[in-house]
Design a binder for these strands. Sequence first.
DNA 1: CAGTGGTCTAGACCACCAG
DNA 2: TGGTGGTCTAGACCACTGC
Lengths: 250, 250
Amino acid sequence: MATIERNTTLAAQIRQSLEMQIDSKLLQPGVKLPSERELSELFDTTRTTVKEALLAMEAEGRVYCEDRRGWFVAPPRLIYNPLYRSPFHQIVTEQKRQLETLVLSSRTIVATPTLCQELALPTLSRVNEVTRLRKLDGRVVLLARHYLKPERFPGILEHDLSQSLTTLYEQQYGVRYGRSRFEINPTAAWGEVAQALMLTEGSPILLISCVNYDQHGEIIDCDHEYWRHDAVRILVDSQELERMKANTLL
Amino acid sequence: MATIERNTTLAAQIRQSLEMQIDSKLLQPGVKLPSERELSELFDTTRTTVKEALLAMEAEGRVYCEDRRGWFVAPPRLIYNPLYRSPFHQIVTEQKRQLETLVLSSRTIVATPTLCQELALPTLSRVNEVTRLRKLDGRVVLLARHYLKPERFPGILEHDLSQSLTTLYEQQYGVRYGRSRFEINPTAAWGEVAQALMLTEGSPILLISCVNYDQHGEIIDCDHEYWRHDAVRILVDSQELERMKANTLL
DNA sequence: CAGTGGTCTAGACCACCAG
DNA sequence: TGGTGGTCTAGACCACTGC
């Protein structure tokens, strides 16, 4: 919550002013803020200073920016447990939110060295790559690239890949997730990633990389998830893991 | 790795130029970059543009800024598993790095509503708060605030709190960590946190909140860890958890 | 085509840090 | 005290979006 404070900098005053509007629900999640130019007139300053305030609020996850579209009030973060490999759709609906999945591409490629290492493959192996964009309540929040071992999922690229891969694995191939391992890196978005997430080049994002194993401990696939950093909150409970295990192995 | 590309923007060219120097080890981790003014002359541009390039590199974790001190080449990230509650000193030395811990304050306070909830305490309970600053290879990377249930650790504030709390708990109070639960929030640094981490107000950071339970499933303590976002890489393996459990419970 | 943010210029004054 | 980044001004042109 924003509190009234004596603050030295102009940018801090702009921030507080906007935060008070947001806290008081006068500015609702998803609503577009006035343009940088309008704000700079409102606060009798320049775009540079307004932008500085907005960037700090963006870092905090209070507002977000869509490239050349404008600034918006950030909705609540999605709570996400990367170890909990249930269908993503389910995770989202349990939080009473709406998911949309777009398949950007699906193809077979030669694995990069990093991928070979992650999937424990010999060099120059081929892998299936599926790139999907996910929208939360209509907003782009996640670009996910899945890399599958082709021999485990023959012909999978012919299926409808906008559905849950978890379900597809299980129903079509009898493969279920067992243990998994993930890594979180705060980093920046460039090129395609920035474009897909509608971010400016160099914006901070969260990169979550998962490696998944089946019920027999064999590697199934891995994925690289590029998240808008304000859209997610990671939550991991070691106890929940026990329950998951019970569910998976029985 | 930076590759030579035709890039449109000046800021991107500055970035690539600096990244090439870093990749080629001409600029070693920890080394100070030329001042913003020098760089702007070097690249025949203004401080604004130089700063834009530096901020993007900071988001990526290639460089970092110390408030009013200058810009430095970022050292490799520390690999950190928040579920793995072994002495932090051990985690750091295993990665052949050097840890320094400074106790900033230790006192008894009235728990905030958030804290009461996290620790499952009645409202207006008192808790012991220990604030510590941690340096990795001489660089401030983490401000950690621990909140302990006072009745579990009578007189703990009299001990030397710059040592491992894990060890202190076990040796002085016979308390060992069992399960735990953590949460990761990308957010921004304000006030004391920004100051302690030598960050500009509003810089992006990673907030990791942990709640820890003892071997009997009772809550022991929780902590709020404010990390410089470029200093850490979270890694969690569900299998490792099994081993941990075996170690803790036997 | 009007409006948006993205990028960039060429300065200025300040607080703070280090020698 | 000289040099650093922090903050801020008052503009400009551009690429792209959305009507």
